[in-house]
């Protein structure tokens, strides 16, 4: 069991991504173990590109991405979600013509079903349960296009959770939220760890970074310059240099 826990869940090695002449990711290595909480941030460039490469919405040019011992190669995003690799979008992208509840049924039917047997009524139950967790239960039948920004972010997170992932990548879920809302979401995400889900958070909100993370990785100009526990990263010379200048 202990051995299994030490096996990396996600192993990114040497991933490179260029846009024309611009190198957005330069030879990135990153390892995430099961149930681990990793924050990538708090600032710097290339984070969203990395998320997109891992989720499969962008193709990396060099390097490989292994998930759960399997090379993702050129698997399309939906294949990766089905393996248990879910992501949220920085700007919420709800299915606007559907009710809040139906939004969650999509990943439940298309992704979660791949590894958990779910009947029709169980899907509705599971969706409702998730909505209770994020505090949207009373809006379950409202159209998602009418939600407030905060509720949309919660829905975005719930929809990723509905895929029943082993690893959830959250892309700036907290931007623009109030302190108490940040805490709500932190509680949610911490709860995921207890359910055996590893989490990568891309985050600016410094309080969230320090409170949440067991490990912090820092990307600057497409290169990873630090990776370790929060305190050691904050003390890292290169990080200080990158943030405060020479």
């Amino acid at each position: 069991m202990a051995d299994q826990l030490n096996q990396p869940l996600l192993q990114v090695s040497g991933v490179t991504k260029r846009f024309g002449g611009f190198t957005a990711l330069d030879n990135i290595d990153l390892i995430v173990r099961p149930c681990e909480r990793l924050v990538i941030g708090p600032n710097g460039s290339g984070k969203s590109t990395l998320v997109n490469c891992i989720a499969g919405t962008l193709r990396n040019e060099g390097g490989s991405i292994l998930f759960d011992g399997r090379d993702l190669g050129s698997d399309p995003p939906h294949g990766r979600v089905r393996l248990g690799l879910a992501r949220t979008f920085q700007i919420p992208r709800p299915f606007v013509s559907m009710s809040v509840l139906d939004n969650l049924c999509v990943p439940l039917e298309y992704a979660a079903r791949q590894h958990i047997k779910l009947g029709k009524s169980e899907i509705a139950e599971a969706a409702m349960h998730l909505l209770e967790q994020v505090g949207l239960a009373d809006k379950s039948h409202a159209l998602s296009r009418g939600l407030t920004q905060v509720d949309m972010r919660k829905l975005e997170l719930a929809r990723a959770m509905a895929a029943k992932p082993k690893l959830l990548i959250s892309d700036e879920a907290m931007a623009g939220l109030s302190a108490s809302e940040v805490d709500d979401i932190l509680v949610l995400v911490s709860g995921l760890q207890q359910q055996g889900v590893a989490v990568i958070m891309i985050e600016h909100v410094m309080r969230a970074v320090m409170k949440f993370s067991e490990r912090v990785a820092v990307l600057v100009a497409g290169k990873k310059i630090a990776d370790g526990d929060p305190q050691s990263v904050v003390d890292n010379d290169q990080v200080i240099k990158a943030y405060l200048g020479e």
């Binding site: 989720a55 919405t57 399309p76 995003p77 939906h78 979600v81 089905r82 879910a86 992501r87 979008f89 992208r93 709800p94 299915f95 606007v96 013509s97 559907m98 999509v106 990943p107 298309y110 992704a111 979660a112 791949q114 929809r159 509905a162 895929a163």
Partner: peptide, 10 residues
């Protein structure tokens, strides 16, 4: 509604 979001929902 949103093709990319659909793809990322499996």
């Amino acid at each position: 509604d949103d093709e990319l979001a659909a793809e990322c929902a499996g």
